[in-house]
Design a protein around this nucleic acid. Structure first.
Lengths: 207, 207
DNA sequence: TAGATTGTTAATCGATTAACAATC
DNA sequence: TAGATTGTTAATCGATTAACAATC
């Protein structure tokens, strides 16, 4: 569980380094990154050491070098091809999400069961769900996004698992069953909002 | 930080209780909830005790009673009215998100600067950003969602803060500045995907 | 060299789990 | 009552922080 937090921090370090690079920084110190992300310098160095990311004693971290190491750990050294199932409101929003095109993340195809949504010749083709297995195997896709209504989520998860998908980003509020060899990241909007509401009402400070 | 996790678990207990209620359970034990959510029974009771949620020694927890207590902590005992700024892809998806209508969460208005999006007479009115302050004050809105492009996020945050918003759900990848009295929940899709990708490539098990 | 920063080890802090007394 | 489950206290575990030796 806290491995998750550690990797999330790594993404934030990466984003901070990108910002500093755009400010023409050539090297950064653990202290800079601590300030930029709101953690301690110890934490930064500890995180780096756990992922085998190293700098120069006395000389801090070379920005380009550090960025390379961070990107490698985060899988951003190569293009990550994803598919999405469910081309409704959320699905369409993700297909057009500008944040992905900038990074090494690309949704390469969408799947649905509604034939009015099919668009096999579009830039990002929308295909029948039946074709998912073939597509995934042929294109060696490892990661899938589930953006279907509740009642369809578990079935779609099964299809993905059978097709050989290794990681699932689940936007439905359904808790998917544990399945060997598949990592699931659940993103339940209602739960996230409940969290925010709690801290607005009762708690204090930032989450 | 781990308070966040504790509240997230509370939401999961609530969802589990709802499922068990739909199965006609009248009472549940900490052990049932532990199984349903994948934590220990000790954790369930500890979490409950920290939020002042109590059951009956020997008799477990009455489902309706427990649900009432959980809903109260999570602010689901009254309707939560939200506004959203940015009626693009993500914004539209959230306006139509079916998960909210079922729960006590309702987006009551959208704001944008693009006049082609205005729809003041729609069921959920889409209004000019200029009108946000008035609307928020008049309707005592506490929570706002930011679904605008990167470059506009910080400015919109400023407008919300001035208007008296207490909690912000931020879908932009921009890290908003700390501001006294405002809670921010950042949801950066790229970061979440990087996390998933990491565990697919290097790690193992579920996140 | 002297000074400064990393990388790592030890100390602290907090969260989770185990155990058990209270009690229905 | 006997048995079972809560609520809480104590023990454990793990993550964060502090300190410092290594070294550039």
């Amino acid at each position: 569980m806290s491995d998750r937090n550690r990797v999330l921090r790594l993404s934030r370090y990466k984003n901070a380094v990108l910002r500093l690079k755009s400010l023409n920084f050539v090297k950064v110190f653990s202290d800079n990154l601590a300030d930029a992300t709101g953690v301690t310098a110890s934490q930064v160095r500890k995180d780096f050491s756990i992922f085998g990311i190293s700098g120069n004693r006395r000389g801090g971290y070379n920005v380009d070098d550090l960025l390379g190491q961070l990107n490698k750990v985060l899988g951003k050294d190569k293009l990550q091809k994803l598919i999405i199932v469910g081309v409704g409101n959320i699905g369409k929003a993700l297909l057009n999400y500008p944040g992905f095109s900038k990074s090494e993340i690309k949704i390469v195809a969408g799947f649905d069961i509604d034939h009015t949504k099919f668009a096999p010749n579009a830039e990002i083709p929308i295909l029948p769900l039946d074709e998912l297995t073939n597509y995934v195997k042929k294109n060696r896709i490892e990661i899938g996004i589930i953006a279907v209504p509740d009642f369809a989520a578990e079935q779609v998860f099964g299809v993905m698992a059978e097709a050989g998908i290794k990681g699932v980003f689940n936007f439905s509020p359904i808790r998917l069953p544990e399945r060997a060899g598949i990592v699931v990241n659940n993103l339940d909007l209602e739960t996230e909002l409940e969290n925010l509401i709690y801290f607005v009402n009762c708690g204090s400070g930032n989450i």
